[in-house]
């Protein structure tokens, strides 16, 4: 479904991605962990081309998509993204947040988009918050609306960039539950997170990234309890504590 080959990205003198390779099968959930500054967010943004990689190839469904003749907008509308800071459109209600993409990008008519939007809000447990503005919602509720907003584009895959890191502890569970349900439904997902519980139950594979490289790859059991690399061991030791 998604394949990345030899991805390189520099921001000025900073070498953020130093040749990253990964592959995610259809319906698979891949979790990426790693210290801050290791390039996880940049990697996700290179996959949906929010950031243009310097070199390397990004494949979606077997087609290389980081090419001059493919519009990045076309790629992004097929790969949903959920951000650490939610980024709900502050001037729109929850429902309008969910319908904006379908109406303005896909050309869905307003009534159909609204019906679909209400269904998606129901799916994330927020049917009663359709008319609330982002500022009137808790962090957990905002993040669930953001998930519904990404789903409204009917994406082939979803990218999650530390979706629970900005949340108060009491709201983390509800967001992870929605993500777990999504995984159960067979959504292809790449999730940057340090939530060990979610990683252990939802993901078959975990990647550990450090300093722009993938250091180690394995099952949750292998990465969390029997890491081979010293760097993985040190990092996992810190987050397990």
């Amino acid at each position: 479904m998604i394949r990345v080959e030899e991805l390189q990205k520099r921001f000025g003198a900073l070498h953020v991605l130093k040749g990253v390779n990964l592959e995610v099968q259809k319906g698979e959930v891949l979790v990426i962990i790693g210290p801050s500054g290791s390039g996880k967010s940049t990697l996700l943004r290179c996959i949906n081309l929010l950031i243009e990689p310097d070199s390397g190839r990004v494949f979606l469904d077997g087609t290389q998509v980081n090419r001059r003749d493919i519009r990045p907008e076309w790629v992004r509308q097929q790969v949903g993204m959920v951000f650490q800071s939610f980024n709900l459109f502050a001037h729109l209600t929850a429902l309008q947040n969910v319908t904006l993409g379908p109406v303005r990008v896909l050309g869905t008519d307003a009534a159909a988009a609204e019906a679909q939007g209400r269904k998606l809000l129901d799916r994330v447990g927020l049917a009663d918050k359709a008319d609330a503005y982002p500022a009137q919602l808790s962090g957990g509720q905002q993040q669930r609306v953001a998930i519904a907003r990404a789903l409204a584009m009917n994406p082939k895959a979803m990218l999650f960039d530390e979706p629970t890191s900005a949340l108060d502890p009491e709201y983390i569970r509800e967001v992870l539950d929605v993500m777990a349900a999504l995984a159960m439904d067979g959504m292809t997902m790449i999730v940057v997170t340090h939530e060990m519980g979610f990683a252990s139950t939802a993901a078959k594979r975990i990647l550990f990234m450090d300093a722009g490289r993938i250091i180690e790859e394995g099952s949750p059991e292998e990465i969390f309890h029997r890491p081979k690399q010293e760097r993985t061991r040190m990092f996992v030791g810190k987050i397990l504590r």
Partner: peptide
């Protein structure tokens, strides 16, 4: 916030559409 533009673009909007809407 910059994230607003980024979120709009992540839905497949062009930069122009993201600015406008």
């Amino acid at each position: 916030p910059r994230g607003q533009l980024e979120a709009a673009q992540s839905l497949g909007m062009t930069r122009g559409a993201a600015m406008r809407y």
